[in-house]
Each structure stands twice: as C-alpha cells, then as structure tokens.
C-alpha cells in the first residue's frame, strides 16, 4: 500500500488542484470577457485589471464603507453588477468610440486605457490606502471527505464562475442581442448592412465584459486581498490566458484559463509564488513562437 508520506503528498496535490481550478474558473470568466471585447470591438482594454479590482472595491464600499450589509451578497450583486455595466458602457461611448474614427485607433485605445489604468490604480491607492482590503467569504466552513478538506468557498467560486460563463454562453447563442454580437464580430460591415446598431453593440459588449471581470473581482476578493496596485498584473494574466487560448475563441479561453490556473498553482507550490509570473511569461513566449494564434484562435 502507499506510504504515509505518499498519501499526504496526494492530499497536498489535491489541495493545489482545487486551488488551481478555483482560480482557473475566475480566469475563465475574465478571459471570456476579454476575448469577447477584443473579438467584437477589436479594442484592447489595459484597465481591465483595474475593473477587476473595481468590482471588489464597489462591493467593499457597499458592505463596509456605507455599511449596508442587509441581504448579503445578493444585494451586492444586484447593486454592483449594473453599476459595472454603466461604467463599461460610459467608458466605451465617451472614450473609445471617439477614437475609432482616427488612424491607428487600436494603438490610441491602448494608450488611453493605459492612462486610465494608471488613473484607477493611483486613485485606489489614494482612496483606500495601500493596505489591502478583503471581502468576507460567502460561505464559510469546509467539506470533509475522508482526510480531504475542501473549503466551501473554493467550490462556490468555481460554481459561480462557471455559472456566470454558462449564462453568458446561453445569452450569446439564444438571444437576439447575442446573435447581433456574434454578427458584429464576424462581419462588422454585414452587421451594419442588416441594420444592427454597431456602435450600441460595441458599447454593450464592452459593458458586458466589464460586468464579467467585476464579478470575477468580487469572487476572488473573498479569497485573496484586494491590492490596489495589482491591476497591471491581473490584466497581464488575463491577457496571457486569452492569448494562449486564442483571441476571439471562447472555448480556447476556457481551456487556457484552467490550464494556466493549474499551472500557476503548481508552480507556486513547487517553487514559490514569484516564479509563477515568470512561468506564465515563458508560456506566453512559447505560445507566440510556436503557435501565435493560441490554442484555438482563428489566426488573427
């Protein structure tokens, strides 16, 4: 039979596995949002990571800043999700849309959103202080199966992220707006011809991705702290996942998210957290050299 040590090792590995799946599911949420925006509007949002934090911060403000804890997380979601939608919609309409008319607009959008990222990061630091905040977990406690211990939190995060993605996927394929979004992504000229209001779709898509990433922020802020300066790192991670999965491919993004979530968890366990960024970077470089369109990209 297996020795004591091997069994303990297996339990440790399972722990890491769960952690990896849990973060992977949030990455999936973010990757889907990012690939959606890029696939449809071709705009790249450098402030994506800061929107992730925005979700967490809005939740924190509601629960602790204003002190409104009635209804728990249900209230939080009801209040914060539409707020994120508005922020995303307004941002697209006011800042991205005017740039579309200019030459080189994709680059200009990148620069603008980079400025926005800096603005938000420093704003968070000023308003919330450098000390990190965290949100209380939705479900405390653990599930014990034999000697394996799963925290309800991890399971919940996984379930909710996947749930969010499935809702999104359903909307994309079964609602009129979803079809319109796909149409704009596949042929913007054709979309215009059939009378799809392209500009409104751009703004809505941007807004939806903001909601998704904000939702991810709320979920992960329960597990890890909200670090005001982490916007850049989070954005790069989301980007790596999306690029690895293939820009514009939702399925690719899903696979990539879990692979990277697990990779990060295992590298962190084996070598230490600071190496996981390096590992990601190496993976990215390898992808770009060997298969630039990612796992399932359409060769953009």
């Amino acid at each position: 039979m297996f020795s004591e040590d091997t069994i303990l090792l297996l339990y440790e590995i399972t722990d890491v596995l769960i952690a990896g799946l849990s973060t992977g599911s949030v990455y999936a949420l973010m990757a889907v949002g990012m690939t959606l925006v890029y696939g449809v509007t071709k705009a790249f949002n450098f402030a994506y990571g800061d929107f992730f934090n925005m979700g967490g911060y809005f939740a924190w403000i509601l629960m602790f800043g204003i002190g409104f804890q009635f209804g728990g997380y249900v209230t939080v979601l009801i209040v914060v999700m539409p707020l994120m939608f508005l922020v995303g919609y307004a941002l697209e309409k006011l800042m991205v849309a005017p740039l579309r008319k200019r030459a080189d607009w994709e680059n200009k959008v990148m620069m603008l959103t980079l400025g926005l990222a800096l603005f938000l990061t420093s704003l968070y630091t000023v308003v919330f202080g450098v000390r990190m905040k965290s949100l209380p977990p939705i479900l405390e406690g653990t599930l014990e199966v034999g000697q394996l211990v799963f925290s309800y939190q991890d399971i919940l995060i996984f379930v909710m992220s996947i749930g969010g993605i499935m809702v999104f996927g359903w909307m994309l394929n079964n609602t009129r707006i979803g079809m319109a979004v796909k149409a704009v992504a596949q042929n913007p000229i054709g979309a215009k011809i059939v009378g799809i209001p392209k500009e409104r779709i751009f703004a809505s898509t941007f807004a939806i991705s903001t909601v998704m990433v904000g939702f991810g922020g709320i979920l992960l802020s329960q597990k890890w702290f909200i670090n005001p300066m982490s916007g850049g790192t989070i954005m790069v991670k989301a980007w790596v996942v999306t690029a690895f999965g293939g820009m514009g491919s939702i399925r690719g993004g899903l696979y990539a998210a879990f692979i990277i979530g697990l990779l990060e968890a295992f590298v962190g366990w084996l070598f230490g957290m600071s190496y996981s960024i390096i590992a990601l970077f190496i993976l990215l470089l390898a992808t770009l050299v060997i298969r630039p369109q990612g796992l399932m990209g359409k060769g953009d």
Binding site: M95, G115, L116, S122
Partner: peptide, 10 residues
C-alpha cells in the same frame, strides 16, 4: 498623470 494621458489621447 493618468487622467492627463486619457485627456491628451482624446
């Protein structure tokens, strides 16, 4: 600075 970048690009 961040706000400046945004304003300048626009």
């Amino acid at each position: 600075m961040g706000a400046l970048v945004v304003i300048l690009v626009l």
